[in-house]
Every structure is written in structure tokens, then in C-alpha cells.
Design a protein around this nucleic acid. Structure first.
Length: 452
DNA sequence: TCTGGGGTCCTAGGACCC
DNA sequence: TCTGGGGTCCTAGGACCC
């Protein structure tokens, strides 16, 4: 029987900030999404503050917000709505520092990987391990050692759930964080049947991995309210009224593994690069720069996985929450006759797509570039009739040099001129509360002063 | 003034093939 | 007059995830 462990970093982004900034550890800490838009992470103190304010005011910090994950939480609420309140409570606020989080993530996954030869890196802050082939007597003890090592080496607290299926491992991980006495570790395989039932009944059906807002509403309408109810449901009727996915979840909750460990990450099938602008943008030139920049970012990822794409799409949109603005949203796709990974070519195509949908009368808030129909580079059918085969070989060589240089000298050392030359163009995103990228930039290293 | 970004899988329906 | 059956591939849209 398989044994899966799910390990995730607690409030990962907030923990990364606290790891390098001891002065904020005793304060509530929140981290904002790109463009300082929403709250996407909060440390324990900030979560406690949220609960306290809900209690005091009978409403959450961000009640009424569109993004509310649950009506009671400030998570995913627009920052501007709660900025004052957070400030009153001495909250440390950080803009997203993805360079830092990505680097910390790599370090964390590497340490976790020392605990099993079988690891699936599932997200920036989550890993699955498969443990059944290892001579482990006590999983709880093993997990505690893992937790201790990650904390000691990089200062990130993690929780561990262990179970015979991935879905149960996720559930155990969730419970491990809910119950203080578990100290962040729960081994489902060691529990008695009656304890399992007790715990399954504590978990709302919407908290089960794979059950989102829509499904939980439908399930609740059928009186399936907890993980226990779902695990008791008949797979056949679930399949009929819902889908194979939900049927699989029922099986997984019953200890029957349907989801395997994916140790090798598959090539991406779509690559998206999109950003909201720091300010609303109307002029075509700025939009062209933004679209060229996003295309360059996406194309670099495409080349990293040694693929080419067969289609480029561009989307632009006005600010959907600002009802006083004239609203407009459009997408344009251009198929490529010869699939490509060349930034120069792809950005030319992307700009053509942009010109198809740009209208001068609107003020835009966001643009996106989507590369799709992605295939491995070697196996692509060349177009016999493309006249500039030679030119394209030269251009590809140039792009290769650009990638190598940027890898060695740092991101954006060399870039295409159509991405714009100003450091602070009006379309670039807002990041008013950025912490230093202290693990990846020499000039942003942490300085430590000894106090005698 | 101020509301994120990047993915996956499944399903239904249409085009096309033999 | 009578208009099948089985299959693939592609796409858009919906739901989910972090």
C-alpha cells in the first residue's frame, strides 16, 4: 500500500518574510499579490487579528469583497479596503517578492527531497513524498525530524500529513494545522477507525481537495456537508450526479488511491504571462511595450522546457471593478504557420494581435499573452515554403546568446528593444512594500549588526 | 487612487475521417 | 422514399487548484 506525505509551508510567503526580518515576527504580517492588489498570505498573528476583528465587529476585515474565499476571512480581499485597519493594528505589510519566495521554495523542496527518493513538487510551497518503500517504523517521528530540519536550515515552519492517498494526506495536513496538540504532524495510518470518523466529521466538504465553491453548494443541497458524508456517499450515484472527478475523490477518501505521485513534471501545455498595470493605460505604444515584455517572459519559459508554440493570443481588458470606466475586453489569437520559440518573432505576432483589438477610446488595466499549442521542439514539421529559413537560424542563435547572458548576469541584462527602455514606464506594476531579494541579489544582501 | 497571476482537467459540441 | 456507426482531434467554457 502506498503511503503519501504532504508537506507544505505554513503561510509560506509570510514565513519567508519573517525568516529574514526578525523584527516583524511578533507582529501581524500580510503579503500582497502583484500590483499590491489583494492579501494573499497572512501569518498566525494576522489570522488571529482577523478573527478578533470579526468577533468585535460581527464582520470580517474585508466583508463584501468579490474575492472572498469565505465571507469571514480577509484573505484575497483588496488591500486598499483594509489598509487603514491593518495599520491601526501595527501590521507589517509586504508586496510580493517572488524572487525571494521562489528561491526559498527551491531550498525547502531540496531539504524535503532528502527524506524520500520519490518526491513530487506540487506547488511553490507543497511537496508530496512517497514513503512506503522506506524502512520507517514511526511516520510521526520521521515527519517531526523533517519538520525540524526545514525549520533549522531555512527558518520555514511546515506541516505534514501522512496517509494512503493524496486526498487523505491533504486532509491530514489540514487537520495537523487545526489541532495545536498535533504540533503540525498527523499520521492518518496510525489512527483508529473511530478517530478517523471523528476527524472526517470535523472537516467541511468544501475543504476537501478538489471540492470548490460550486461543488460544495451542490453537495450540501444533497445533504453532503462534511468529508465524512462525502466518504459515505455511493460512488455510482456521485458519478451520475457529478463527475468522475468527484467519484475519484470519494474513492480516495476511502483509502483507495486513484492519484499517483508525479515525479517528473510534464511540459506546460499553456504558458501565460499577464500583469495588471500600475496605472490605467490608453496609448498603443505603452501597450505594445507591455505585450512585448510579457511575450519575452513567456517565450523564455517556453525555451526552458525546449518547446515551441503554435499559437499566440493577446488579451486586453479595462478595470472590471471600476464601474465608472467604459468597459471593454477582447482576445485575439494568431496561429503560427511554423511553430516557434523565438522571442523576436513571437512578440511581433503578439503586437499584431494587439493591434487587432486595441481601441483608442478605452483605458486599459491589464494585458495578457498566452502561448498555446505547445510541442517539443525537435519534432515539429518545418514549413517547406518559408523563405527566410536562414534569417530565422541567425535570429535563434541571437536569442540563445541572450538567454545565456541573462542566466549568467541576471534577469533582463539583455532584452529586446520593443520591451521599452525606461526603468519606470507607466504600465509597470506597483510594489510599494518590497522587501530585499536577499538570497538572490548581491546588492540586496541582509546586513547584520552586532549589538554589545 | 487602490480588486493578482498561472496553471490543470473534464465535458460537450463541431469538423472531419473511414 | 430511404440518410449509419464509430472514431479522432480540436476548441471553448466551466470548475478546480495554489
Amino acid at each position: 500500500m502506498a503511503v503519501f506525505a504532504l508537506i507544505d509551508g505554513n503561510s509560506f510567503y509570510a514565513s519567508c518574510e519573517m525568516a529574514f526580518n526578525p523584527s516583524v515576527r511578533e507582529r501581524p504580517v500580510v503579503v500582497l499579490s502583484n500590483n499590491d492588489g489583494c492579501i494573499v498570505a497572512a501569518n498566525a498573528k494576522a489570522k488571529a487579528l482577523d478573527q478578533q476583528l470579526i468577533g468585535a465587529q460581527g464582520r470580517s476585515l474585508g466583508s463584501g469583497g468579490y474575492y472572498a474565499a469565505t465571507p469571514q476571512s480577509m484573505m484575497y480581499q483588496p488591500y486598499f479596503k483594509v489598509a487603514n485597519l491593518l495599520q491601526q493594528h501595527n501590521t507589517a505589510v509586504f508586496s510580493s517578492n517572488y524572487e525571494l519566495y521562489a528561491d526559498m521554495s527551491q531550498r525547502m523542496h531540496r531539504i524535503i527531497g532528502q527524506f524520500s527518493p520519490h518526491q513530487e513538487i506540487y506547488s511553490i510551497d507543497e511537496s508530496f513524498l512517497e514513503l512506503s518503500t522506506l524502512p520507517i517504523e514511526d511516520f510521526t517521528h520521521y515527519a517531526r525530524e523533517l519538520k525540524r530540519r526545514v525549520w533549522k536550515w531555512i527558518g520555514i515552519p511546515v506541516a505534514v500529513g501522512i496517509a494512503p492517498t493524496k486526498t487523505l494526506a491533504k486532509l491530514a495536513n489540514h487537520l495537523a494545522k487545526q489541532h495545536a496538540k498535533m504540533e503540525g504532524v498527523l499520521d492518518w495510518t496510525s489512527l483508529s477507525e473511530s478517530t478517523r470518523i471523528l476527524l472526517l466529521k470535523q472537516v467541511k466538504v468544501g475543504k476537501v481537495w478538489g471540492i470548490g465553491k460550486k461543488l460544495s453548494q451542490k453537495l450540501e443541497a444533497q445533504n453532503i456537508r462534511t468529508a465524512y458524508d462525502l466518504h459515505q456517499a455511493s460512488p455510482k450515484s456521485i458519478r451520475r450526479t457529478f463527475s468522475v472527478q468527484v467519484e475519484r475523490i470519494v474513492a480516495e477518501l476511502n483509502g483507495q488511491a486513484c492519484l499517483a505521485l508525479n515525479e517528473t513534471h510534464a511540459d506546460k501545455q499553456n504558458i501565460v504571462s499577464s500583469r495588471s498595470f500600475g496605472r490605467l493605460v490608453s496609448d498603443l505604444d505603452s501597450l505594445k511595450q507591455a505585450v512585448a515584455t510579457y511575450t519575452a517572459t513567456a517565450a523564455e519559459k517556453l525555451r526552458q522546457q525546449q518547446c515551441v508554440c503554435g499559437r499566440v493570443s493577446v488579451m486586453i481588458t479595462t478595470p472590471r471593478f471600476q464601474t465608472q470606466e467604459l468597459q471593454y475586453r477582447n482576445v485575439y489569437q494568431i496561429p503560427l504557420i511554423t511553430p516557434s520559440d523565438n522571442s523576436a518573432l513571437l512578440s511581433k505576432v503578439a503586437i499584431q494581435a494587439l493591434q487587432q483589438i486595441w481601441r483608442p477610446e478605452f483605458r486599459y488595466q491589464k494585458a495578457a499573452v498566452i502561448l498555446s499549442t505547445i510541442r517539443p521542439k525537435g519534432v515539429v514539421q518545418e514549413d517547406l515554403f518559408t523563405p527566410q529559413a536562414n534569417a530565422s537560424i541567425k535570429s535563434d542563435a541571437l536569442i540563445q546568446v541572450m538567454d545565456q547572458l541573462n542566466h549568467r548576469m541576471g534577469k533582463n541584462t539583455l532584452r529586446l528593444a520593443n520591451c521599452g527602455l525606461q526603468r519606470q514606464a507607466n504600465w509597470k506594476m506597483k510594489r510599494d512594500h518590497m522587501s530585499p531579494r536577499c538570497t538572490t541579489r548581491w546588492n540586496e544582501l541582509l546586513s547584520v549588526r552586532a549589538v554589545h
